[in-house]
Design a protein around this nucleic acid. Structure first.
Length: 377
RNA sequence: GGGUAGGUUGAGCAGGUGGUGAGCUCCGCUGACUGUAGAUCAGCCGUCUUCGACUGUGGGGGUUCGAUUCCCUCCCUGCCCA
């Protein structure tokens, strides 16, 4: 039986950064890569054709949301998630672990799993490692994620350690529960922002036969320095582990560089699409909010250097109008642009790793997307 | 011309029948957003020296210690009649 995914990579001489290719049953992904988030089997406002056009090679969908609506069994009956949403590229499904965190006030965690009230209708729902794996197998994603427990990084250390250890036990149960050889399963490292906990977690997760290693529990309110320290500890602990490395929930443009030079190969984040719907455009010159009055009479493109449909065909004035009028086209054009930018940035990062210009690209992006006061190095 | 109902901060309103009208919703301005309960949320939105102060209820006048309120007059708007 062939492995569900294969990952080949080579070092670049830039810190722990690697260049690689992740091959899945639905296609190959050049890494470092960014995965647009399509929680409910839709990257909001975009068609699969749009996703191809903006350069997406893989997308993310969500176990929790799709199990509640329309139901994973229904999706399975309809031929699986790829056919259901008409995306024939690779799909990674998140396990629902993040919802245990973001919807924590709706539920309670015990050793076996999580019980919570559906955010849709209040009905009681139960998620366990076994059920998270079963749902993801029904969805038929290329890559499934282990069911983990995130926790607030500011929580007491013993609580963070307890959540981490539970995550390890749940990881082992996910391995046991898997029944489909054609679907990859990634384990998730936790441990808050304590480097020694991160090292423990890496040791525990890498000891299991996962197809990839994810780093979870970051970009949830910790400082940039804490994220860097956590990633340093993670990279040290991972050593020469050959598996693909996925930093969950990141990021903003400067974050990609921080993580890539610490060995990360995969990213996902709602940020480019969410901020797009709120009027924020990412450009080679930094952030731009097209709701701002200053753009109302500007006939120029959002980013003259951007090849996307939005920048090619529509002015800042028009986009500013669309946002004020709350026209649906605003959300699509903004999402097309921000994903074009983000995926283009990943392509530039790969190019820079290949030709030795990574540091200058990193510094150029950092200069345009300055980190917040108090979080700079 | 007569009658009638009104005139409150950009718009639409609430309130107020002698003692504190800056309250709401839009619109507008700005910010936030990191494994999506998010086409969302937050702050501001009369002026100023902004933990407060001042001004403000169509204009003018009167009564009163005090008027958005009572009286007179004028202007404007809707409706009805002529």
């Amino acid at each position: 039986m062939p492995a569900p995914v294969s990952f080949v990579s080579r070092p670049t001489g830039v810190g722990h950064a690697r260049l690689g290719q992740l091959t899945t049953p639905h296609g190959t992904i050049d890494t470092p890569a960014f995965m647009p988030v399509g929680t409910q089997a839709s990257v909001k406002s975009l068609t699969p054709g749009d996703l191809r056009t903006v350069g997406a090679q893989v997308i993310l969908a969500n176990t929790y949301h799709l199990s509640l609506r329309p139901g994973h069994d229904r999706i399975a009956r309809l031929g699986g998630l790829h056919r259901f949403m008409s995306w024939d590229g690779p799909i990674l499904t998140d396990s629902g672990g993040f919802q245990v965190f973001s919807l924590a006030h709706l539920g309670t965690v015990d050793e076996d799993g999580v019980t919570f009230a559906s955010h849709l209708d209040g009905s009681t729902q139960r998620l366990t490692p076994e059920r998270a794996v079963a749902i993801q197998e029904a969805l038929g994603s290329d890559i499934a994620m282990a069911f983990d427990q995130l926790i607030d990084a500011t929580a007491p250390r013993d609580e963070i350690a307890a959540a981490m250890e539970r995550t390890h036990r749940w990881a082992a149960r996910c391995i046991e529960a898997r029944s489909r050889e054609s679907q990859a399963l990634f384990g998730i490292v936790q441990g808050g922002v304590a480097p020694e906990l991160r090292r423990q977690s890496v040791a525990a997760i890498t000891a299991m036969p996962f197809d990839g290693i994810a780093v979870g529990g970051l970009s949830v309110g910790e400082t940039k320095q804490e994220m860097r320290d956590s990633l340093d500890a993670t990279a040290d602990a991972l050593g020469d582990d050959p598996r693909v490395r996925y930093l969950m929930g990141v990021g903003a443009p400067p974050d990609f560089f921080t993580a890539v030079e610490r060995g990360i190969d995969l990213f996902d984040c709602v940020l480019p699409t969410r901020v797009a719907r709120n009027g924020q455009f990412w450009t080679t010159d930094g952030k731009l909010n097209l709701r701002n009055a200053v753009h109302l009479d500007d006939p120029g493109p959002t980013d003259p250097d951007c090849p996307c449909e939005t920048c090619r065909d529509y002015s800042r004035a028009y986009l500013a109008h669309l946002f004020r009028a709350r026209e649906l086209l605003a959300y699509r054009l903004a999402s097309v642009h921000n994903l074009t930018y983000t995926l283009g940035l990943m392509r530039s990062i790969r190019g820079a790793l290949a030709d030795g210009s990574f540091a200058s690209l990193r510094d150029a992006v950092a200069a345009k997307y300055g980190e917040r006061r108090g979080e700079a190095e």
